[in-house]
Simulated scan of single mutants.
Amino acid sequence: MENTVLHLANTRGTANHGWLESNHTFSFANYHNPERMHFGVLRVLNDDKVAAAKGFGTHPHDNMEIISIPLEGDLEHKDSMGNTTVIKNGDIQIMSAGTGVFHSEYNKNDDQLVKFLQIWVYPNKRNVTPKYDQITLNKSDRKNNFQQILSPNATDAGVQIQQEAWFHLGTFDQGFSSTYQLNKNTNGVYAFIIKGTATIENQDLNTKDGFGIWNTETITITANSSDTEILLMEVPMSL
């Protein structure tokens, strides 16, 4: 029997620090909701806007897979592994924090916001050597198609994650339908509508709504507006 959970955009936790506006799908920092601790191993889904020339100072992480998906603007990353990079829309970044890493993230521009999704996934192996990766994708490959952006396999498309998880991004024309086939029957899929409107398994969804589905092998998705953009996160349901 298929199970679902719905998180409407306007029910997310919010934080406004002046330089940072953040919406939290799951409990994070000062937002605590016992009903929203995680979806399987998906622990954090933050929808962040960072003011021009501002950002997150150096801070630590360990034993977490941290994925950044820029939506607008340029985000500069520095870490204790010696990486200094800039990621922008079309790029995917992952940091396997493992035994521990320090990093900072700043808006590279002094004249515009940077908007990005910050996602945390519990790893399937603790205390691994920290690792960093980022790639630039061909965005045209996700037109009316789910483009794989992350997987457990080093030889697959996208960045590699320390978990049995697969992420896909797609941008769809109004009325376009597609079916997503899960890689593992013990996984679930959490769909996040980045832009536009869609119907997933008979559930109508608007911009920034989240919808989780598990105990199913396939998921049917129909875009209800032009340029609908959807992120699918397939993750193990057991911690």
Rank of each mutant, 00 (worst) to 15 (best):
Asn185Pro: 14
Ile67Tyr: 04
Trp120Gln: 09
Lys54Pro: 00
Val44Lys: 00
Val159His: 02
Tyr180Lys: 01
Gly100Trp: 05
Lys131Trp: 02
Thr85Glu: 11
Met81His: 08
Ile92Arg: 01
Ile66Phe: 07
His38Tyr: 05
Thr11Asn: 15
Asn127His: 15
Thr186Asp: 11
Val50Leu: 06
Ser104Gln: 00
Gly158Gln: 05
Ala52His: 01
Ile67Thr: 10
Thr220Leu: 12
Asn224Thr: 14
Val86Gln: 08
Ala29Leu: 09
Thr218Val: 06
Gln162His: 04
Thr179Asp: 13
Val114Ile: 12
Lys78Thr: 01
Ala97Gly: 10
Glu229Gln: 13
Phe167Tyr: 15
Phe56Trp: 03
Pro152Lys: 02
Ile193Phe: 09
Glu2Phe: 11
Asp47His: 05
Ala29Arg: 07
Lys139Asp: 10
Ile194Tyr: 12
Gln163Arg: 09
Lys143Gly: 03
Asn206Ile: 10
Leu205His: 07
Lys131Ile: 05
Met81Gly: 07
Arg43Thr: 06
Thr85Pro: 00
Ile230Tyr: 02
Ala154Ile: 13
Phe146Leu: 10
Leu117Arg: 03
Lys78Phe: 00
Phe116Ser: 04
Met37Ile: 15
Asn224Ser: 12
Gln93Phe: 15
Ile149Trp: 03
Ile92Ala: 07
Tyr122Asn: 12
Thr216Pro: 03
Ile230Cys: 06
Ser104Ala: 09
His61Gln: 05
Thr228Gly: 14
Thr129Arg: 12
Asn89Pro: 03
Ile66Asn: 08
Gln181Ala: 13
Asp62Cys: 12
Ser140Trp: 08
Ala165Pro: 05
Thr25Cys: 13
Asn10Gln: 10
Glu217Leu: 14
Gly55Tyr: 00
Asp62Ser: 14
Asn30Trp: 08
Asp133Ser: 13
Phe211Thr: 03
Lys54Asn: 03
Asp110Val: 02
Asn16Val: 04
Thr186Glu: 07
Gly82Arg: 04
Gln174Trp: 06
Gly73Lys: 00
Ile69Asp: 02
Gly98Gln: 03
Ala165Lys: 02
Pro152Ile: 05
Glu105Leu: 14
Ile230Val: 13
Ile135His: 03
Ile87Asn: 00
Leu45Met: 12
Pro123Arg: 01
Asn23Pro: 05
Ala198Tyr: 04
Thr4Ile: 15
Tyr132Lys: 12
Ala223Asn: 14
Asn33Asp: 15
Ala51Trp: 04
Gln163Trp: 05
Ile200Arg: 06
Ala9Tyr: 07
Gln147Ile: 11
Glu234Asn: 09
Gln134Arg: 14
